[in-house]
């Protein structure tokens, strides 16, 4: 387990809380934190890998007893303070001021150019890098691969996208996906290291002895999480 967020396969959870005809947002502040996080990403004041890492840094007991948009609020504040966009003191001070006047109007700032970029993000997504990454994929469909083991992860400071249940396992490449920046490196401040990503298929039984005999789980894994199967003692990956 890499941190409190790394939930795949954890036992003890009850029925899925399915809500029929649920609203898009259950509280008005959920809509505000959603939109504020999105707008901060558009403004490049927030990067999704860092946002995820901040969520992962929430202490496990707190993570389990709070909900999705509370994680987002925590993460947005951490990321904006870390990036120097806002200070904790300014946020605390503003909270105190708003406590006496919670319906105070938002400050006025128009910028049609920014609003247009927001629309472009919503409808066209994050712009692709101008130059496609030229790289040769190390693995091909049907290759057997072994996955890395992340030792002593430090949630909230280090980050990886290989779930705990898929570490130190053997699977088969199901799909070869286009290169993506290695999130581990982005969070570690090592910059953009694009690598091919592979949808690796595991027999569910190889992950959990009580899983269905026919079933399988596919996980998107970056090239550096993988090595050819049967190539000797399992290598471990330092996360520092």
């Amino acid at each position: 387990m890499n941190g409190p967020h790394d939930l795949g396969g954890l036992p003890g959870f009850g029925a899925i809380p399915i809500e029929v005809d649920e609203p898009l947002f259950h509280e008005s502040w959920h809509a505000r934190i959603f939109g504020t996080t999105f707008a901060s990403a558009v403004a490049r004041a927030l990067r999704i890998d860092l946002q995820r890492c901040a969520v992962e840094g929430i202490p496990p007991a707190l993570y389990m007893s709070t909900t999705y948009y509370e994680w987002w609020l925590h993460a947005l504040e951490e990321c904006l303070v870390d990036a120097g966009a806002l200070t904790r003191e300014a946020i605390d001070e503003r909270v105190q001021r708003l406590a006496t006047d919670p319906d105070a109007p938002l400050p006025e700032r128009d910028d049609p150019e920014f609003d247009a970029i927001v629309q472009a993000f919503i409808h066209h997504g994050i712009p692709a890098p101008p130059e496609p990454v030229q790289r040769t994929a190390r693995f091909a469909v049907a290759d057997a691969v072994e996955t890395t083991v992340v030792e002593h992860p430090a949630p909230g400071r280090e980050h990886t996208r290989i779930p705990g249940y898929a570490q130190g396992k053997t699977g088969v490449v199901e799909r070869v996906l286009a290169p993506q920046s290695l999130p581990d490196a982005v969070v570690a401040g090592r910059g953009e290291l694009p690598e091919h990503v592979y949808a690796v298929r595991f027999r569910a039984r190889d992950l959990w002895p009580d899983a269905g005999a026919r079933d399988s789980v596919c996980v998107d894994l970056w090239e550096s999480y993988l090595r050819p199967a049967g190539a000797g003692p399992a290598a471990t990956k330092e996360t520092s």
């Binding site: 502040w29 504020t36 707008a39 901060s40 403004a43 503003r94 708003l98 128009d110 609003d115």
Partner: peptide
């Protein structure tokens, strides 16, 4: 949480990072 969210949104607008209408 509602107050803290509003505080952050307000400060981001004042800092020129987002606009009043973006959210």
């Amino acid at each position: 949480a509602a107050l803290r969210t509003k505080a952050i949104e307000s400060l981001l607008i004042e800092a020129g990072i987002i606009t009043t209408g973006a959210v």
